[in-house]
Nucleic acid binder design. Structure first.
Length: 597
RNA sequence: GGUUCCAUAGCUCAACUGGAUAGAGCAAUAGCCUUCUAAGCUAUAGGUUGAAGGUUCGAGUCCUUCUGGAAUCACCA
């Protein structure tokens, strides 16, 4: 990109010299030449015709001639329609490779003292059920964004707000109390989050029974939903919880701890972690007091029944409830409190919430309310809204048990990875420990890449019946290429071929080699773009492109068997550099790469 | 009903933010392992970018209308 900017300046100079007018900046468009054309950078001449007053072809010819004569590294040009393709010298690209080779942190800029602080909130689980596929997408996007921002010189704090209180938690507590027979993870052998989730579903089933019974007795649906004895009991429990009733609190602690033990296992398997965990139970009270202050200052309104609301109708939105009439808090209450505490803790320059797009409205409202309440940092809040993961038959619903469970899915991936690896004979001669490690890297690579290669904002479809692929545009394909390169590096080393002291003047590089080199160099821009757009899919698409490029190169050319010593060294160097970039890019996605597979 | 988002090959996704002939993978068909790892490579086939207008040198991308889908508008979280 730096070079594109430089070229842009040169083009402006040229236009001043030839046509005697200074062009508008945005009309000078320098971009990378598309792959199927010869050249490195392309100038679009159409917008410049107003200065040249000539045809696109003529204009391109004139500019091309001038630029070739006046810039050393431009060795030639071609004109197709109105596009001027500028060709750079081989030396220029070889220099780029050498720069990258010598730079341990090629393409990434780690944070320092001047870096801005960015909070990345992700995961945000409810402690009433196990994690499912949607959470996996959330966790992977959040973790990857954190890594990408770190590579863009940002001081990143990974946070997780645990929604550990609320009516939904009381539902599973109540059901366990009623029908649980004192079951524990130990007594049942169930993972803690699964055990609790079982009772959340149980509650919903019994609740629905009560509702239909009331409807058959002549109540309408809404009344039935309000008046069912179970929901009343759950509400009562929530009230007791907020009053710190000892029995309720101790049940709550017991069951939440079961869930945390379960979550920890899942997080570890996924390879994600957090710098700071917040609990809703610690922040909701602060949220309440902020809301009470807002009421005093006349920013909020209170209704006859005592419930407190924000009136956003002037902003084209609805009214939003902030505190219930019985004084208990809602989702928004704690989010306000949490945001406040976080700003106090970290003075963030930006706060990214990785949360599903079903909550677009919620975050729109959160931001406005915080601004209304007079917090200037509210404008630093950014909702990274990602799309739902759907099954072929529609949305997943945890209450109805139609979810793809996170642990099950990971387990399936491990089994599939093992079967495929065995079939291909890739595990021969490895120790059990090595096998486990490799299988784990591949299985998670497949899963993570599958979810991250898709633009976060788009909904995606996952078919549990068709297992995730291991060939084509997949994680294992990329990992495999990396493993191949490492094998080359090992063999090169044992044959004492070193990727240094190359006499570059003797090299005659093929277009494909230059193409690969350009793709490697593009890593730098890509990291920047991924950071600006908060989009891991940019990284995934890039690394796929790079790997495809390399595999063609690997197939078409001899590397260690090349007879020309300089060329052999160069190709090894190019390969190892590709490997380094693959590893780095995959790390930005939170994906590990194996030395052998 | 209001608001927001989405619609690209049979399926899953791209398209450098308005640029050149809309590209990949899967699935299908046909090739390539006595040679650096075949989880690879090559080729064939597959498209009126949901529809109709508009803006301009130029539209999958921007605007309008329509069709179809999703989310949300809860004293759920």
């Amino acid at each position: 990109m730096k070079y594109a900017l430089y070229l842009k300046e040169k083009v402006i100079e040229t236009i001043i010299n030839i046509y005697d007018t200074k062009p508008e900046l945005k009309l000078v468009q320098v971009q990378h030449t598309r792959k199927d054309f010869v050249g490195d950078y392309t100038l679009v001449t159409f917008p410049l015709l107003r200065y040249s007053k000539k045809s696109p072809e003529q204009t391109a010819e004139e500019l091309g001639k001038y630029l070739t004569e006046h810039i050393d590294e431009i060795t030639g040009f071609n004109v197709i329609k109105g596009f001027l393709n500028l060709e750079l010298s081989q030396d220029y690209w070889l220099n780029k490779l050498n720069e990258a080779w010598d730079d341990e942190y090629f393409g990434i800029r780690l944070p320092n003292k001047e870096s801005k602080t960015i909070l990345v909130e992700y995961s945000s689980p409810n402690t009433n059920k196990p994690l499912h596929l949607g959470h996996i997408r959330n966790n992977l996007i959040g973790y990857s964004i954190s890594k990408i921002l770190e590579a863009n010189n940002k001081n990143v704090i990974k946070t997780n707000i645990v929604n550990d209180r609320g009516i939904h938690i009381c539902k599973s507590m109540l059901a366990w109390q009623k029908w649980g027979n004192n079951e524990t993870p130990k007594s049942t052998g169930l993972k803690g989050d699964f055990l609790v989730g079982k009772y959340y579903i149980k509650f919903d089933q019994e609740y629905k029974k009560e509702i239909s019974k009331l409807i058959s007795q002549g109540k309408n649906k809404k009344e039935a939903e309000q008046d069912a004895p179970l929901i009343k009991e759950a509400r009562e429990m929530l009230k007791k919880w907020e009053e710190a009733d000892k029995k309720v609190i101790s049940l709550w602690q017991k069951m939440n701890n079961w869930v945390y033990e379960g979550f920890d296992i899942t997080y570890e398997k996924l390879g994600v972690d957090f710098d700071k965990i917040y609990y809703e139970s610690d922040t909701y009270k602060l949220g309440k007091s902020i809301i009470m202050d807002g009421l005093k200052n006349g920013k909020l309104i209170i209704k006859k029944d005592g419930s407190i609301w924000a009136d956003l109708t002037e902003k084209g939105l609805d009214e939003k409830i902030l505190l219930r009439s019985d004084g208990t808090s809602v989702y928004m209450t704690q989010d306000i409190g949490t945001a406040y505490i976080r700003y106090k803790d970290f003075k963030f320059d930006e706060h990214i919430y990785v949360v599903g797009n079903e909550q677009d409205y919620h975050f729109q409202v959160l931001k406005i309310i915080l601004q209304e309440l007079g917090y200037p940092w509210a404008r630093c809040i950014h909702h990274l809204s990602y799309g739902m993961v759907e099954l072929p038959e529609g949305k997943m619903k945890s209450r109805e048990g139609t979810v793809v469970d996170a642990d099950d899915l990971i387990e399936n991936m491990l089994t599939t990875a093992k079967n495929i690896s065995e079939e291909l004979g890739k595990l021969d001669g490895l120790s059990d420990k090595e096998i486990d490690k490799t299988i784990n890297i591949i299985a998670l690579g497949a899963l993570k890449y599958f979810l991250l290669k898709i633009d976060p904002k788009k909904n995606m479809v996952f078919n549990p019946k068709e297992s995730i692929d291991f060939s084509g545009n997949t994680g294992p394909f990329i990992q495999y290429t990396y493993a191949r390169i490492q094998s080359l590096a090992r063999k090169g080393k044992s044959k004492k071929i070193e990727a240094v002291n190359i006499n570059e003047k003797n090299l005659k590089l093929d277009l494909k080699e230059i193409q690969l080199l350009k793709t490697i160099y593009h890593f730098t821009n890509m990291v920047k773009e991924a950071g600006e757009t908060h989009n891991p899919a940019v990284v995934a698409n890039y690394v796929y492109e790079l790997v495809k490029e390399f595999n063609q190169f690997y197939h078409d050319f001899n590397i260690l068997k090349e007879e020309d010593m300089d060329l052999r060294k160069f190709r090894l160097k190019l390969s190892i550099m590709t490997g380094r970039v693959i590893k780095q890019a995959m790390a930005l996605l939170g994906i590990d790469v194996p030395e052998k597979m």
